[in-house]
Computed example of a mutant assay.
Amino acid sequence: MSFPPYPQEMPVEGVYSTVPPQGQFGVAPVVKPLSPLAITALVLGIISLLLFWVPALKYLILILALVATILAIVAVAQTLPNKAHRGSSMAIASLVISTLTIAAVLGGQAMYSKANGEAAGTSSVSPQASKAGATSDVVQLENGKVTIEVKKVEESVDDSDGEPTVAVTLKITNNDTSSLNPFAYYIEVSQNKAELDSAVYSDDLKPEGYEPFADLEEVPAGKSVTLVEGYVLRDATAPVTLMIDSTISSTKAFKKDYSLQ
């Protein structure tokens, strides 16, 4: 005895069907994790790009941008279609931002140095070389809100690595009604157009009046501080060029050569 075939239930709109939806028992697609290197590179690149206009932070900005560039390159390779991470667009954006930041810092520094050189030609201070330790030159910045007086520029004790140094003594006066941010002015010391590195001294051998990190302290309104900075000499006989300027504007730049002999 035979039975008629069991009718197959078909999906009908508005009626329940026993036929499982297509793909219900298939394997769910795997979502790749977002590359942490791409995220880190993007954050560092944006930070460095936002700060590139501050000349006093140029070394820190360059380091951040270089690190972001390296991370971005690795992230690009890490997010290829056959790799285990996603975020290729973010990695490429990070690479572009960090590269532009490096170019902006280097280009901005070149323009800054050129502007200072031109401004120094019209400065009220003579650009001629003077005897070390025998000058007292004054420059006004920020429309007179800041007065910086060069007290001494003279050869000093060796740094902690035994390298010869030059000590620059400045008197900084805040003529404003609010505290003076240490990044409001810019000081550069160079020899033969090459900027000198800051010196690091040992506790028992350092220039008179030198205090580490004193250049990071704010100057209270209406007060003056004496700042002693040390720099590693590249040449024991070449004159030292001192440049002082406002971080943002270049209205009254100061540039002068000081002989160490």
Rank of each mutant, 00 (worst) to 15 (best):
L242Y: 07
V200T: 13
L233H: 12
S179V: 14
E142V: 04
V138P: 00
K151F: 02
M243S: 06
V200H: 06
E195M: 08
E154V: 04
L233S: 07
S246V: 00
T241H: 05
L216H: 08
D176G: 14
L216F: 12
K145T: 08
T135F: 02
K206Q: 14
D137Y: 03
K151S: 06
D159T: 01
G209H: 07
G222D: 07
E218M: 03
G162D: 06
E208F: 14
V225K: 09
P164Y: 10
Y231N: 09
D161K: 15
T177M: 13
E149A: 13
V225W: 00
L205E: 15
S136L: 07
S202D: 14
L196F: 01
G162R: 05
D235A: 09
T237D: 15
T165N: 09
G222A: 04
P220E: 03
V228L: 01
Y186H: 15
A236M: 12
Q140H: 13
K206E: 11
Y186Q: 10
A134N: 06
N192K: 15
F183W: 12
Q191M: 02
G162V: 05
D245W: 00
V139Q: 05
P164S: 11
S198I: 04
D204M: 08
N175H: 15
A184K: 14
V153C: 04
T177C: 07
V146P: 01
Y210L: 05
A199K: 05
K193H: 13
D158W: 01
D161V: 01
G230P: 11
S246I: 00
V200A: 11
I148C: 04
L170Q: 04
I244F: 00
A214P: 01
M243W: 00
T169P: 10
D159P: 05
N192E: 14
V200Q: 08
V225I: 08
R234Y: 01
S190M: 02
V150M: 10
P220I: 03
S202P: 05
T165A: 06
E195G: 02
S202H: 03
P212M: 14
Y185C: 03
V153G: 06
G230N: 11
L227E: 10
L242C: 02
Y201T: 02
N143G: 12
N175T: 13
D245Y: 00
